[in-house]
């Protein structure tokens, strides 16, 4: 897969991940900055590194499974690996300007 094709495929995955919202903040996990990395490999293998707004969040399992299902919904995806990480810990500064505006964050 060329770097351009890989980037476009990762973009499709990110778009699909926008279906997953953080229930508390009510905004999609991509624009909240909860998705740290999306890597694609040959053969439709997708690796997603993501976090949650707080450790121990009861929604963690659902967010992880939701991200897996959303990524899997993209055509040509054959395998999805979701890794949960708290390094670095999430901060509101990681949100996109649109997400900040939506939440009324300075």
């Amino acid at each position: 897969m060329t770097p351009e094709a890989s980037e476009a495929f990762a973009g499709e995955i990110k778009e699909a991940l926008r279906l997953v919202i953080d229930p508390e903040l009510g905004y999609n996990i991509v624009d909240l900055g909860l998705v740290y990395e999306v890597n694609v490999e040959d053969g439709g293998v997708v690796h997603v590194a993501m976090t949650t707004t707080t450790r121990g969040c009861p929604a963690t399992g659902y967010l992880k499974d939701g991200a897996r299902d959303a990524a899997w919904s993209v055509p040509s995806v054959e395998f999805v690996d979701i890794a949960l990480t708290y390094d670095p810990p999430w901060t509101p500064d990681m949100m996109t300007p649109d997400a900040k505006r939506h939440l009324g964050i300075m």
């Binding site: 919202i21 508390e24 009510g26 009861p58 659902y62 939701g66 991200a67 299902d69």
Partner: peptide, 23 residues
């Protein structure tokens, strides 16, 4: 509200559009 959301909408997260806790 939060627990009700988790119970009802958590399992379909990523499969379909879901409301927010605030909804």
């Amino acid at each position: 509200a939060f627990l009700t959301w988790l119970e009802c909408y958590g399992p379909v997260l990523g499969k379909t559009a879901t409301p927010r806790v605030q909804d």
